[in-house]
Structures are given as C-alpha cells and as structure tokens.
Amino acid sequence: MADIEAHITGTVWKIECKIGDTVGEGDTVVILESMKMEMPVEAEDAGTVKEILCEEGQAVNEGDTLVVLE
C-alpha cells in the first residue's frame, strides 16, 4: 500500500478521485488550497484508491495522509 500525503499545509479544495479508482503515477488525486493558490497532490505510485482520509474544506498539515492506494 502507498500513502499519498499533503506536501503543504492548507485546505482540501477538491478531491479528484473516489474509492475504487485506478490512478497512475503523476495523476492528481487531491487539490489543496494555500494562500489563495491551488496545489495539486499527485500519486507517486500507480494503484487503486483504497481509502480517502480527507474531505473537501478540511484543513490539513504537511505530512497528513490524504489518500491510501493498494
């Protein structure tokens, strides 16, 4: 399993995947908003989305796990 973590502190602006989706390396899974800028969070590995551990509008810290792949 691979965890996709927030690379910045911010707010979850949009979730671009759902449980069961297949994602490839480099695919955007979540978009974070920080200081009025949108920052895509990309999968570092290919896999299937097992869990989504965030919600749109939720504040997250750098290093928080957002999505779990299997």
Rank of each mutant, 00 (worst) to 15 (best):
V60A: 01
G10H: 08
A59I: 10
E51D: 15
M1S: 11
V49E: 07
D21M: 10
D64L: 00
K50D: 12
E5A: 15
K18W: 11
E16K: 15
I8F: 06
M35K: 08
G26Y: 08
M35C: 04
V60D: 00
S34Q: 00
M35E: 02
A43F: 02
I31H: 08
I52K: 08
E44I: 01
M1T: 11
C54S: 04
S34R: 01
L53E: 07
A6R: 00
I19K: 10
L69Q: 03
M37H: 01
V68G: 01
E5P: 13
G26S: 08
A46I: 05
G10F: 00
T48C: 04
A6E: 01
G63C: 04
M35R: 06
D27A: 11
E62K: 15
D64S: 00
I4H: 07
E56F: 06
G57T: 00
E33S: 04
E16Y: 14
A46Q: 12
A46F: 07
A6M: 06
E33V: 05
I15S: 13
A6D: 05
A2K: 14
A2R: 11
I19E: 13
T9Y: 06
V41Q: 00
E56H: 03
V67R: 06
A46S: 14
P40A: 06
T22F: 14
M1H: 04
C54R: 06
T22Y: 15
L32C: 09
